[in-house]
Structure formats: structure tokens, C-alpha cells
Simulated scan of single mutants.
Amino acid sequence: MTLALVIEQVLNGVQLGVMLFLMAAGLTLIFGVMGLINLAHGSLYMVGAFACASVAALTGSFWLGLVASLAAAAAAGALIEITVIRRLYQRDHLDQVLATFALILIFSEGTRWLFGSFPLYLDIPPLLQGAVGLPGGAQYPLYRLAIILAGALVAFGLYALISRTRLGMRIRAGESDREMIAALGVDIRTLYTLVFALGAALAGLAGAMVGALQSVQVGMGEPVLILAFVVIVIGGIGSIKGALIGALLVGSVDTLGRFLLPQLLALVVPPDQAGLIGGALASMLIYILMAIILAVKPRGLFPAQA
């Protein structure tokens, strides 16, 4: 184990955390403001990835594909909020879960009908190809560093939006007392549509950026959705700060656990068994982390209304 390898894995953990933050930020914003459990959030991640891959294939430009991913995911989010989600705000969470699960099936089959069952592939743009040197002589992909930077910029932008703008003030007020801001003349329906579209756009952006690292395929959003729920539970439901800290914790624990546990277990058991046992334990680490945090702080690390 070298210093360069450890630094590389730490950066991989941060990069995974950034992607989870983009998913979890929209999810926690929607749940915090609307009180809605949206299982279809992973489908919006998939929509962004497919929009980016298809537009990039047609135009030859990754950047146009990235813009298309934001537009397509936001439009899809606004459409389902107006046609389906709007009817669920006053219903209990079981109805919300069933309705948004149905949306997962609709999006999956609709995407399969439009693009087929075969995966699409998205090339890294030439500007972000190559690698940068790390201490110890290792090379780290420039594209992954760009993802980390993009996530940091989005986190700063969300902080500025929520804390420094009139829209952010309305979002915070809607989270605290939606009846009062509606009585003050704020169009609560339009506000909810904007919040839902914003959350969807963040999910679409995450899907587009990950699409250049793995194949773009139907159902790619569901595994990420599970991790995003873990993130918002750890960070505190409704908290953007909590989503960021929780995402970085989950990304780092998951990545470093998969890297370190097999090597540590190899000291006491045969290497082949160490790999199997270490991989199984590593997949449990984030849930163990969640259980420990909830035992100490039942509302998460940074609950929105602490």
C-alpha cells in the first residue's frame, strides 16, 4: 500500500460523495419542503444520463448533452409534479410510495421503448481527458477531479440560493409553514413545481456526469437512490448541509472500506477469503454507520429544524 494509492482512493471516495450529494440534495429539498417521499428520483437521474448520451451522440458535444440533461430532467420533474405529485401532498406516505414506485416502472419501460434495452456509452470530453499527477507519482483522471469541482460549485450555489435569494427565503418558509406563506400570497403550487424541477435537474446532472464513467442503461438510478436515502437520513432530512456532509461520509466509508478491509483481513485469513469477506463487510459499512449515527442523533447530523 503506497501513499499515492491511498490518496487515489480518498479522492475516489470524495468523487462518489459528490455524486451522491447531487442526488441527495434534490431528494432532501423535495422531502423537506413538500414532505414527499419520491421514489422516482432515481428515474430522473436516469433521464439525465440518457438525455446527455443521446444528445452527445447526435451533436458530438458532451457539453450540449450536459445542458440537455439538465433541461430534460427538470422538464420531466416539472411534468410529473404537475400531473401526479401535486395530488399526493395531502395523502399519506404509503400512497406517495406506491405512486412514485409506479412512476419508476413507467420511466423504465418508456426509456426502454425509446432507446432499447442495450446500454449507451458517453465519451469523456477531450478537454477533461488525461490525468494529473498525485504525490508519490500516481496519476488521477482529470474528469474525476472535474466532477469534484462541479459538486463543490453546486453546493456553493445551493447554499447561496437557499440563504441569499428571495426564492430561497420562500423555500425555507415553505419548509417551516406552508399554510402561512400561502396565506401571504405566495403561489405555493408554482413554488413546489420550481423546487421539484430543481431537485430533478440536480439528479439529471449527476446522471449525466456518471454516464461518462459507466454505461447508461435502464434501471441505473435505483441503486443510487438507495444510497441517496442513506445520505439524507445520516445528514438530516431537509438539510442541504447535512446532505453534503452525509454524502462525503458515505462515499468515503464505502470506497475506503472496499479498499482497506480486504487488505486488513488478508493479514489473518487467506487472500481469496479476505476478498470475499472484505467485500461483504464493506457493503454493510454505510448501513452500520447510519445505525450508529441514528443511535446517537436520531434526527441525523444536521436536522433542518434542529
Rank of each mutant, 00 (worst) to 15 (best):
Q129G: 02
W113C: 07
I181G: 00
A173F: 04
I147L: 10
A155D: 04
I148A: 15
G110D: 06
D187A: 01
P141I: 03
G116A: 08
I104M: 15
A173Q: 07
A160E: 14
I171W: 03
G130C: 05
Q139T: 14
S117C: 10
L153V: 14
D177R: 03
L114C: 09
A152S: 06
R189F: 11
I171D: 01
S108I: 07
L161T: 03
M180P: 03
I106C: 14
V132N: 12
L153I: 06
L184A: 10
L114N: 06
Y140H: 12
R166Q: 11
I148T: 05
Y140N: 08
G136A: 07
P135T: 02
L194R: 11
R189C: 06
L194E: 08
P141R: 05
R172M: 08
D123I: 03
S117A: 15
S163T: 11
Y192Q: 14
S108E: 15
G133T: 14
I106P: 07
G157D: 06
D177A: 01
L105T: 15
E109C: 04
L167H: 03
I171K: 02
W113H: 10
L145Q: 12
V154A: 07
G110M: 10
L142C: 09
Y140S: 07
L127Q: 14
I124F: 01
L128W: 09
L161P: 00
P126K: 02
A173T: 09
T165P: 06
P119H: 07
P135L: 10
G157V: 00
Y159N: 12
A182Y: 01
R166W: 05
F115H: 09
G136I: 09
Q139H: 13
L105V: 15
A173G: 12
T190R: 12
R172G: 08
Q139W: 12
I124Y: 01
G137W: 14
E109N: 12
G136D: 07
P126H: 04
Y143E: 07
R172I: 08
R189N: 09
G157P: 01
V195G: 05
L127Y: 11
V186K: 01
Y143L: 15
L161G: 02
S163G: 03
L114S: 10
A131I: 06
L134N: 02
V154D: 11
L153D: 05
I188G: 03
L127P: 07
G174R: 00
F118N: 13
A131T: 13
Y143S: 12
L161M: 04
G133V: 05
M180A: 11
L127S: 15
D123L: 07
Y159D: 10
V154C: 07
V186Y: 00
A138K: 01
A146Y: 07
A152C: 09
I162H: 01
G133Y: 05
R170K: 14
P135Q: 02
Q129L: 08
A152H: 02
L105K: 02
L191Y: 01
A146S: 13
Y121L: 08
T190Q: 09
T190H: 09
Q139K: 13
P135A: 12
F156L: 11
I148Q: 01
L161A: 02
F156R: 10
L161D: 00
Q129S: 04
P125N: 04
L134C: 08
W113R: 15
I147Q: 04
P141A: 11
A155H: 02
S176C: 03
T111V: 13
S117V: 06
S108R: 03
G157W: 00
V132W: 13
